[in-house]
């Protein structure tokens, strides 16, 4: 078995095992750590596919930002880290059926399809070609994505800002009458 195959199977095993733990782990923080492992494995797959720039971007964005966001969300909603809470709903058999069925269909059609494999060489260099493509052929999508990111940024700030939760005004100096307390409660 050559090095590429060995690396592929090792990475595939890592990704699939980590992914299974992500969806089944009882502790949501463990899920997050396994998610990071799976995403790191995917970066390894990108390296195998001769896309080193994407691999670095994957680690930088997913591990450095998205997973971190997830962990922050887990911490801020602390109660869900309790292991006593049931972590799956009643749809486990249905979910298993659906996902396995989907897998069977996809894999069957994959192995049946003759793909037009091309043996052209990949362009040299890390991000040069990618950068040129982004600023020429894909300039419009690139701009749209940047606007989307800006929108997401502002939207997230607006949604998650503490003030957006309507609060009762600060307690007045004099105690409220009984009726008002009832409304506030």
């Amino acid at each position: 078995m050559d090095t590429i195959s060995l690396a592929f199977y090792a990475l595939a095993f890592l990704i699939i095992a980590a992914a299974i733990f992500v969806v089944t782990s009882k502790n949501i923080f463990h899920s997050a750590i396994y998610l990071i492992l799976a995403l790191f494995g995917v970066a390894g797959i990108y390296v195998l596919l001769q896309a080193p720039f994407l691999a670095a971007a994957q680690v930088l964005i997913y591990v450095g930002a998205v997973s971190m966001l997830m962990i922050f969300a887990i911490m801020l909603t602390a109660r869900i880290a309790d292991q006593t809470i049931r972590h799956t709903n009643e749809q486990v058999p249905t979910g298993l059926l659906v996902s396995l069925g989907l897998l069977a269909v996809i894999v069957y059609s994959l192995w049946q399809t003759p793909f037009a494999i091309s043996s052209d060489p990949m362009p040299e260099g890390a991000g040069g070609t990618l950068g040129k493509l982004l600023l020429t052929q894909f300039a419009l999508p690139f701009e749209i994505v940047s606007v989307l990111l800006l929108g997401a940024l502002i939207g997230a700030v607006v949604i998650a800002k503490k003030d957006s939760v309507r609060r009762e005004p600060e307690a007045p100096m004099t105690p409220l009458p009984k009726s008002a307390e009832k409304v506030a409660g």
């Binding site: 080193p52 720039f53 971007a57 930088l60 450095g64 890390a126």
Partner: peptide, 10 residues
């Protein structure tokens, strides 16, 4: 590495 500095950052 030809992605050197990006690798370090990530």
């Amino acid at each position: 590495l030809n992605i050197g500095i990006l690798y370090i950052l990530s």
